[in-house]
Amino acid sequence: MDPLKMESPGRYEIRVQGCLSSAWSDRLGGFHIVTIHVENGEDITVLRGEVVDQAVLFGVLNTLYNLRYPLISVRALKRDETVPLEQSL
């Protein structure tokens, strides 16, 4: 993977606990939002998207915090990485 920089674009996947409407996408950096139901536990929401810089990413994390979604993971994605949603849960 290319080294990450504060001011460079990147792709990220964020997972939080709970369900979140996809209508929030605009206010969450345009991230694609999908909530998945896990058999034995609570809902998990996966957000994926491209950020122009780290400020956008931290803005998204901040908004999730303000909306009270506990964070499960944040991961930088490789350029063409496509991961099925269910994987790595």
Binding site: Q17, G18, C19, L20, S21, A23, E42, D43, L67, R68
Partner: peptide, 8 residues
């Protein structure tokens, strides 16, 4: 019953 209350 099996979810947290959702703010929106």
């Amino acid at each position: 019953s099996d979810q947290r209350l959702v703010i929106d």
